[in-house]
Design a protein around this nucleic acid. Structure first.
Length: 491
RNA sequence: CGGGAUGUAGCGCAGUUGGCUAGCGCACCACGUUCGGGACGUGGGGGUCGGAAGUUCGAGUCUUCUCAUCCCGACCA
């Protein structure tokens, strides 16, 4: 057997890397910092996509698709945007290969140099706004509410599976509005969509808030984010929604004629979540036995494992199981009846635990005799023997319970690891001893934020929305502050 | 790009001061017994020891160069 599941606390990253491979989710590919997402992992992503896609459509958005390549000149049009992404771009400079003169392999054909280099999109604001310019003439053309499911490439110095890969999958929404108020409302709406998804589907409690200027998206006026706390005490930004003001409209000259026949620049938002969500899922709920998935996102919600010695026994068990499977499926539950003869029950139990399948039913000769079934839940690892009568509803009820329990568990973890701190010594001590969210006063300046980051590696994760007004003194500078903000070390 | 570590079978690893045919566990294949928490026995298949050059009678082991991966920083969703 390969290495046993590592104990979690010792080295979270190592555990995490082992976990995702063991749980059959992803592995590093031959390409630097990119990931191969295996079928089971991709099935989780497809679930995430399906739910979000519906939410986007329910809020009036449509899907569209824009090119993966962006002419270099587009980038220079919005100053802070280019500054934010310049250091992490993959650039296409040539379009042809030729046989190597030494006969070994191929080399770049220098004659095929592009006149203007193409950037592999790190995000699509520029090419989309260049397109919107042609779509928007009148107030009647607004709003434009578009989402794109795509891959993007950011050549980060350091990669980390799921959390920061060179290529990642995401969705990016790009909207155009006639008024500032409408655009702000849009970014807030999408923030709420993300928060709802995180909490009610992923069972991950999040703090909604705005980012400090230092953490803001390149080119945004305001960045809204949902911030989650992982089991190792580090914060993870799980989704962002940006109010872009008129920055991109001005950079790409996108104007419309209003009802008064006056030309005005349009107002913009963009918002996105990525395969990082899968990292959040893994790091929020998993335990030393493997992945733990919230039922609403689990590709397999119920696994049924028959215990049998021979074909006759299996046939007998199947007679009982197949109607149960059908009844569950009729209620929208995904069921995997694992009647493979090539693996034994114990092996299957472990496998479904690795994969985080929320509910497992086990049926053997003993159960056939008594009209019972063993039901095991992944979140608590508890097992129970139940009567078969009305088993579908019992299972559905349990799935709901697990969904809720995972959220409650994650929430109480976050509460236990959120600290109101008023002294600098305590601030540093908590960060070093246990991590977590620290709610503390901040004087509102970037200088202070930068100093705190230098000294502790902690950053301001969010300024919570609807934050309580509270007079206090900045944890670092001692200057007056009007509210507490959330600090943490982050991924 | 700095600091540290590691590259030996699909995975995880051992391999002594250079020495004989390169090993172990898991996985894989065959047969048998098993099957309610990753079964066991017997037999079997699988290796450019990351790559290149060098030292040597002889290199997985020593030297130089190189490539890759991981961890810690800088950068970031």
């Amino acid at each position: 057997m390969a290495k046993d599941f590592p104990t979690r606390a010792e080295n979270y990253s190592q555990w995490y890397n082992d976990l995702v491979i063991k749980a059959d989710l992803a592995e590093n590919s031959a390409v630097r910092g990119c990931m191969v997402i295996k079928p089971y992992g991709y099935a989780i992503w497809e679930k995430i996509q399906a739910v979000l896609d519906k939410k986007f459509k329910d809020t009036g958005h449509s899907n569209a698709y824009f090119p993966i390549f962006i002419p270099k000149s587009f980038f220079s049009k919005e100053a802070s945007h280019v500054e934010g992404f310049a250091k992490e771009c993959a650039i296409v400079t040539h379009y042809r290969l030729k046989s190597s003169p030494d006969g070994k392999g191929v080399v770049v054909d220098e004659d095929s140099k592009l006149e203007e280099e193409l950037i592999v999109r790190p995000t699509s604001e520029t090419i989309i706004w260049d397109t919107y310019k042609n779509w928007i003439k009148s107030y009647r053309d607004l709003p434009i509410l578009i989402n794109q499911w795509a891959n993007v490439v950011r050549w980060e110095m350091r990669t980390r599976l799921f959390l920061r890969t060179t290529e990642f999958l995401w969705q990016e929404g790009h909207t155009a509005h006639a008024t500032r108020e409408e655009a702000i409302k849009e970014s807030e709406t999408m923030l709420n969509v993300y928060a709802d998804f995180a909490e009610n589907w992923m069972s991950i409690p999040v703090i909604k808030g705005t980012k400090s200027p230092a953490e803001r998206f390149a080119g945004a006026i305001e960045t809204y984010a949902i911030e989650a706390l992982m089991q190792d005490g580090k914060a993870l930004q799980a989704g962002t929604s940006h109010f872009l003001g008129q920055n991109f409209a001005k950079a790409f000259d996108v104007k419309y004629l209003n009802k008064e026949n006056q030309l005005e620049y349009v107002w913009a938002t963009s918002w996105g979540v990525s395969t990082r969500l899968m990292g959040a899922l893994i790091m929020s709920h998993s335990d030393d036995h493997g992945l733990v998935l919230p039922p609403k996102l689990a590709p397999i919600q119920v696994a049924i494992v028959p215990v049998f010695k021979n074909a006759e026994q299996l046939a007998q068990i199947s007679e009982t199981v197949i109607p149960i499977k059908k009844a569950l499926e009729a209620k929208g539950i995904s069921v995997n009846y694992d009647d493979r003869e090539t693996y034994k029950p114990g092996w299957k139990f472990s496998e479904y635990e690795f994969k985080g399948v929320p509910v497992r039913l086990t049926i053997g000769p003993r159960d056939i005799e008594h009209g019972t079934v063993e039901i095991a839940r992944r979140d608590t690892l508890e097992k129970e023997v139940l009567q078969l009568t009305d088993i579908e509803n019992k299972v559905i009820h349990l799935l709901d319970q697990i969904q809720k329990n995972l959220y409650d568990r994650a929430l109480s973890f976050r509460e236990d690891n959120t600290f109101r701190v008023d002294t600098w010594d305590e601030f540093k001590k908590i960060l070093d001893d246990r991590g977590g969210f620290i709610s503390a006063h901040w004087d509102g300046t970037s200088e202070t934020e930068e100093k705190i980051k230098e000294e502790t590696k902690a950053t301001i994760r969010v300024i919570p929305i609807n934050n309580a007004v509270e007079k206090g003194k900045c944890i670092y500078s001692g200057k007056p502050s009007g509210q507490r903000v959330i600090f943490a070390r982050a991924y």
